Computed example of a mutant assay.
Amino acid sequence: MSPQTRKERERAERHQRIIDTARELAETEGWEAVTVRKLAERIEYSQPVLYSHFAGKSAIVSAVALEGIIDLTTALRAARESAASPEDALGKVARAYLTFAADNSARYDAMFVQKTDLAFGPDAPQPLRDAFAEIQALFVPFADKSDLAARTEVAWSSMHGIATLDRSGRLVDDLREQRLAILVDEWLAAVQR
């Protein structure tokens, strides 16, 4: 292996270690605890080394968010592809989304709550466009193309709202299944008018 290849591999490993450490710190202590200084101490590198990889905290949060988006997209795709019908896919994908949000709180916050450097919309990085496309695929069998994007945004917003309120303890635990059923029923009623 050439010295250049080894240096590139070591840099990539250090880059990933910063991302992993930030995510782990956020999972145990919250995103407020994630600072460049604390990360440098945890991974035993100087702050300038961290800054050689990331411009600051929002860039680190963005990297955690992108990894989370990729994992969320994988979960949504698996749920959609395992469905027996387009109607079944609505429930399976909504459940996968809400489960991901509940099981990955630090990553979910990085993706949709924390300040990041990520652009959303047409200029979004490919992983974000892929996640949106996965949710949009749910409505292709039902929706008119003219309102497909708006319907997808409303569905995403609905799932995000439920996920956020549930994770913060503002919804009744015993009503989770009922909420999910109502959400899917509302989606179906809206597209079958």
Rank of each mutant, 00 (worst) to 15 (best):
P3R: 05
R9W: 10
E10H: 03
H15F: 11
I19C: 00
T21K: 00
E24W: 09
T28D: 11
G30Q: 04
V36I: 11
V36Q: 01
Y45I: 15
Y51P: 12
F54Y: 15
A55K: 15
G56M: 11
S62P: 10
A63L: 11
L72K: 01
T73W: 10
T73A: 07
T74R: 15
L76G: 02
R80K: 13
A89M: 03
G91L: 04
G91V: 08
K92M: 12
R95W: 04
L98E: 13
F100C: 06
F100S: 07
N104L: 03
A106T: 01
Y108R: 07
F112K: 09
K115G: 02
A124P: 14
P127H: 08
R129Q: 15
A131N: 13
E134M: 04
Q136V: 02
V140S: 00
V140T: 14
F142N: 01
K145W: 06
S146L: 11
L148Q: 03
A150G: 01
A150C: 05
E153A: 07
V154L: 14
A155V: 11
H160D: 08
H160S: 11
A163P: 05
T164P: 03
T164A: 13
S168I: 08
G169L: 06
R170I: 09
V172K: 15
A181W: 09
I182S: 15
L183V: 05
V191S: 13
